[in-house]
Design a binder for these strands. Structure first.
Length: 280
DNA sequence: ACCTACCTGGCC
DNA sequence: GGCCAGGTAGGT
């Protein structure tokens, strides 16, 4: 569910309350989350270690710990990381989601905060990694869509691919952080059909796409992410970036720009909406 | 490029 | 009941 803007919003929410503190107790409710190495090992490795930094790489959250090891989260479709204080947890439900809902894991910190990992579909992942060890999939991760890519690099990489541009944008090996919402929104903004072959985009189309990606992602971060259904920020609140959406899940509705009925297709197995008039 | 799997839940 | 959902890995 969360794409780059949602993960970035959560990251920013967590930095102030958690950096400089350490986990004192760990409760794992869904053993599959920490299999195969188990909760006991994770607890031994994590507890007492100060959180030095919280970074984001594509859709991954990367916590740098005092000894150089890392705690990695990926929220997949429905993961939520919600911050709360112990007192709030004991009193129950000052936040939108009461602690009584089925969380997969709860990290309690030494300064009275805790962090709950909710995840309806249970696709989310957590890894604990010794210094220098990559997490599964890290080596194949492309440059971050916001932080890692110059315009010239982006255009050169587009030219080297013959696949359709929308699935390509969502391919984390090509570019890290873009998912099904922002691929569609950026293509609408750039006036490019999702079915176009990447290497056939003109220079000016590629330029517009690069700009559109940045404007779309930055705008979504400014609005604290898109809440279509599950997404919540680290305080348990909904984002408002869905109010900016022009095409995502709007098939059959009139285009906001020209009034033409938006067309819904499937591309790479994913729902895709575009304006047949505004996007060429 | 297309399956399938991994899960749960909302909606028609 | 069937289809859909913000993601990704694995197979053909």
């Amino acid at each position: 569910m969360p794409e780059l803007p949602e993960v970035e919003t959560i990251r920013r929410d967590l930095v102030g309350p958690l950096v400089g503190h350490s986990v004192s107790h760990l409760e794992v409710r869904d053993p599959r989350l920490v299999a195969p190495r188990g909760a006991a090992l994770l607890e031994r490795s994590l507890c007492g270690q100060k959180w030095q930094a919280i970074e984001r790489k594509g859709k991954y959250l990367d916590v740098l710990l005092a000894d150089g090891s890392h705690l990695i989260f990926h929220l997949r479709m429905t993961g939520q990381l919600v911050l709360r204080s112990w007192k709030a947890a004991q009193q129950g439900g000052i936040l939108e989601k009461p602690l009584g809902s089925p969380y997969r894991m709860l990290l309690q910190f030494d300064h009275g905060f805790s962090l709950a990992f909710f995840d309806q579909r249970r696709f989310g992942e957590v890894f604990y990694l010794r210094p220098g060890r990559p997490w599964p999939g890290e080596k194949a991760l492309g440059p971050d869509a916001l932080n890692g890519l110059s315009r010239e690099d982006f255009i050169a990489r587009l030219k080297s691919k013959t696949t359709r541009v929308k699935p390509l944008l969502m391919d984390q090996h090509f570019l890290a952080g873009i998912g099904n919402i922002y691929a569609q929104e950026a293509l609408f903004r750039a006036g490019i059909r999702p079915t176009r072959r990447a290497h056939r985009l003109t220079r000016s189309e590629a330029d517009r796409l690069y700009d559109a990606l940045h404007v779309t992602l930055l705008g979504a971060i400014k609005h604290r992410g898109s809440t279509s259904r599950n997404y919540r920020d680290a305080l348990g609140h909904r984002g408002s970036a869905q109010d900016l959406h022009a095409v995502y899940r709007k098939g059959g509705q009139p285009c906001l720009r020209c009034g033409t009925t938006l067309r819904a297709i499937r591309l790479g197995g994913r729902g895709t909406v575009y304006c047949p008039v505004c996007q060429h």
